[in-house]
């Protein structure tokens, strides 16, 4: 087969650029470069302190190995508390999420109530649980109570939002059919609305229990009880070997809980 191809010779081809406007294209590239340069030069890096990092890292890792399970009593206690926090927060969070989700579903609630419901959800979602935890710790003191209240807010932000979205997608024909039998608002909810969202809701609940367990390990860092508090104490006392043991157990528990919740959800959905 000959390689001599004459027709159409000399036609140029370049890959059409991702952004057609050349000013915008190079402008964006330049902006990104300038941004990175600006950030790296203006962020307050404490270089002297950072230089001490390597020896410190070596010391920490030396201190952390081998992980110490000597105080396993403390470890288990912390985990049981985390579990309690997660369970109670999930239950109360779900109970509160249901009315809130109905409030925040456009098709089920009157406009003013809908806006109120949305506002509550947005506020609950905007704050990282750790910030909420700090406020609760200040209000009700150190310990699991602050953790539970925090994770209730966290659960509401997630479950109520998704449930409200699901409620807005329900098949309205079923609602009309039940209404046509003369059923009132709550009976309609019970017979035409809840059956449509139930499987999703159960899946969500299990997912939320799983993610509350994760979060409970974190809110403890600011004093809201559970394994996070144990970890924070270990870190504060430079017990790096105990801290490593705690971290390893946290990872293991999270993996197991993720696997369990994944399996249950697969069976329900």
């Amino acid at each position: 087969m000959s390689a001599e191809v004459v027709a159409g010779a000399g036609r140029k081809w370049r890959k059409p650029p991702f952004i057609r406007n050349p000013v915008l294209r190079y402008g964006l590239l330049l902006a990104a470069a300038v941004y990175i340069y600006w950030v790296m030069t203006t962020l307050p890096f404490d270089w002297e302190r950072i230089q001490e990092g390597l020896p410190r890292a070596a010391r920490i890792f030396n201190g952390a190995f081998p992980p110490s399970f000597e105080r396993s009593g403390l470890l288990i206690e912390g985990f049981v508390e985390s579990l309690q926090i997660a369970i109670l927060a999930t239950i109360f969070g779900l109970l509160l999420s249901i009315p809130l989700a109905i409030m925040a579903a456009r098709n089920l609630a009157p406009k003013p109530i809908y806006l109120l419901g949305r506002a509550i959800i947005i506020v609950a979602r905007s704050f990282h649980p750790v910030i909420v935890a700090i406020l609760f710790v200040k209000a009700v003191g150190f310990g699991p109570l602050a953790g539970i209240l925090t994770l209730i807010v966290y659960s509401i932000g997630f479950v109520a939002k998704l449930l409200a979205e699901r409620l807005e997608e329900i098949d309205w024909g079923q609602v009309e059919a039940v209404r046509a039998t003369g059923a009132g608002y709550f009976k309609t909810l019970l017979y035409a609305v809840f059956p449509q969202v139930m499987p999703r809701q159960i899946g969500l609940s299990i997912y939320q229990l799983d993610s509350n367990l994760r979060a409970s390990a974190v809110v403890g860092i600011v004093g809201a009880g559970g394994i996070g508090s144990t970890l924070m104490n270990a870190f504060g006392r430079y017990d790096y070997d105990f801290a490593l043991a705690i971290t390893m157990v946290i990872i293991a528990v999270i993996l197991v809980s993720e696997a369990i919740s994944g399996r249950i959800r697969k069976r329900i959905w």
Binding site: A3, V5, A7, G8, K12, W13
Partner: peptide, 13 residues
């Protein structure tokens, strides 16, 4: 995507 001109010619052909 900088192919030799011969390849581009061949492609168009």
């Amino acid at each position: 995507r900088r192919f030799p001109q011969a390849d581009i010619d061949r492609a168009f052909h």
